[in-house]
């Protein structure tokens, strides 16, 4: 079967100082998958996403979005950073943060108008946060902040979504709400790539998985490669996980 490749990574190597964080990564992510990136702390999961998004410059290698550089395909990509990467005491409201998702398509100087506001309100509704639209962001709970970040990415109306630990520090209700939205995105033909920590939920949530620990250990459909062998190779200990399928 001929699959369309959404993200193609070749020979990617990234280092901050002397130690490589990512070493010679080759990875092809097919269109329309809901993929988890798993690996221990310091495995380079966030770095991988940030390299694809051109936030971090790699030492070597290339990343392509539908065959072209990120710079050219920016409008096809949306990003949900780690919740802890920003200061939530910043003087602004939930609606305003979601509106930021429209800034990219607006470009320089042009201000968001009614159309952008409408899109932002719809996204807020989708994540169940419409009644919090005028809330100062510091007064939101961790789960609500995560939903706001998700809404901001939804507004970008992209084809490929990158999410850095969207389930971190959220309660079970929010986790369910978020995963339902991710599954909806996949159903609509979008590609969703998620840095994930909870190995127990991988088979339930995702259909594709990449094992990463500085080097790429394995990548493919969850049902084929999510096994003790790959987990042990990635985490370095004899890992046993009960897989519910």
């Amino acid at each position: 079967m001929e699959e369309k490749i959404a993200v193609q990574i070749d020979d990617l190597t990234v280092a901050y100082n002397y130690k490589p964080v990512l070493w010679d990564i080759d990875l092809a992510i097919p269109e329309g998958v809901l993929m988890a990136i798993v690996g221990p702390n310091g495995a380079g999961k966030s770095t991988l996403i940030k390299s694809i998004l051109d936030i971090i410059k790699p030492i070597a290698g290339s990343t392509k979005i539908y065959g072209k550089s990120y710079k050219k395909q920016r409008s096809l990509v949306a990003y949900v950073p780690q919740k802890g990467s920003v200061d939530w005491d910043f003087p602004t409201t939930a609606l305003d943060v979601v509106m930021m998702g429209t800034y990219g398509s607006l470009g320089w100087i042009k201000r968001p108008g009614q159309k952008e506001k409408k899109a932002a309100l719809e996204a807020l509704e989708k994540v169940g946060m419409l009644s919090f639209k005028h809330r100062q962001i510091s007064q939101l709970s961790g789960g609500q902040q995560q939903r706001i970040f998700l809404a901001r990415a939804l507004v970008q109306n992209a084809s490929i979504y990158f999410m850095d630990e969207p389930f971190q520090g959220v309660d079970a209700t929010t986790e369910k709400a978020i995963i339902n939205i991710l599954k909806e995105l996949r159903k609509a033909g979008k590609t969703v790539i998620v840095v994930h920590h909870d190995l127990q939920t991988v088979p339930e949530y995702f259909d594709w998985v990449t094992f990463l620990n500085v080097k790429k250990i394995a990548t493919g459909p969850v049902k084929d490669i999510f096994n003790d062998d790959n987990l042990t190779k990635t985490y370095g200990i004899n890992y046993k996980v009960s897989i519910k399928q």
Binding site: K71, V97, M100, Y103, G107
Partner: peptide, 12 residues
């Protein structure tokens, strides 16, 4: 001011 890395991904 709010989110520098996100700003970068949007192409600014």
């Amino acid at each position: 001011l709010f989110d520098p890395e996100y700003t970068k991904t949007l192409g600014f």
